[in-house]
Measured scan of single mutants.
Amino acid sequence: EAHFQVQLEQLRSMGFLNREANLQALIATGGDVDAAVEKLRQS
């Protein structure tokens, strides 16, 4: 989780407030914030 701290903060600042969902999306996308946003929008 600490590995994705910067990305988690970016997602939070973009309005994605579900930390667990954000973390799962980042893990699934290897930390790619843009891909994580797409994944979160689809769910």
Rank of each mutant, 00 (worst) to 15 (best):
R41N: 14
L23Y: 15
F16P: 00
F4M: 14
N18M: 14
L26K: 01
D34G: 08
V33P: 08
N18D: 12
L26P: 00
E1S: 06
F4Y: 14
E1R: 03
A21P: 11
A28R: 05
H3V: 09
K39W: 07
Q10L: 04
L40R: 02
I27A: 09
V33Q: 05
A21G: 07
I27R: 09
L40Y: 03
E20P: 08
G30T: 11
G30E: 13
D34Y: 05
K39F: 05
A25L: 05
F16V: 01
F4H: 03
A21D: 15
K39I: 06
L17Q: 15
L23P: 00
S43C: 14
A36Y: 01
K39G: 09
L11C: 00
F16T: 01
A36T: 12
Q42S: 15
K39T: 10
V37L: 09
V6E: 14
V37G: 10
A35F: 04
A21C: 12
R19G: 09
S13C: 13
D34W: 04
L11I: 15
A36I: 01
L8H: 09
T29F: 12
S43G: 15
D32G: 05
F4K: 04
E1L: 04
R19K: 14
E38G: 09
G30R: 10
Q24E: 09
L40K: 01
R19W: 07
R41C: 04
L40M: 14
V6L: 05
L26C: 07
Q10Y: 03
Q10P: 00
L11V: 09
V33L: 10
G31R: 02
A2P: 03
E9C: 03
V33Y: 15
L17C: 15
L40V: 10
H3K: 15
E9L: 03
G31N: 08
Q24A: 12
L11E: 00
E38D: 11
E20G: 07
Q7N: 13
Q42G: 13
A2I: 10
S13T: 11
Q42R: 09
E1K: 12
A25F: 03
F16Y: 03
N18H: 12
D32P: 01
E20W: 02
A36H: 00
V37N: 05
Q10K: 13
G15I: 02
S13E: 12
K39N: 00
L23V: 08
L23N: 15
G30H: 08
M14C: 05
A25G: 04
D32E: 11
N22A: 09
V37F: 04
A36R: 00
Q5C: 05
Q10D: 12
A35Y: 11
V6M: 12
A36W: 00
A2D: 09
L40T: 02
Q5P: 13
I27H: 14
D32C: 06
R41F: 03
G30A: 12
E9V: 04
E9S: 05
S43K: 15
M14D: 05
A2Y: 14
S43Y: 02
L40W: 01
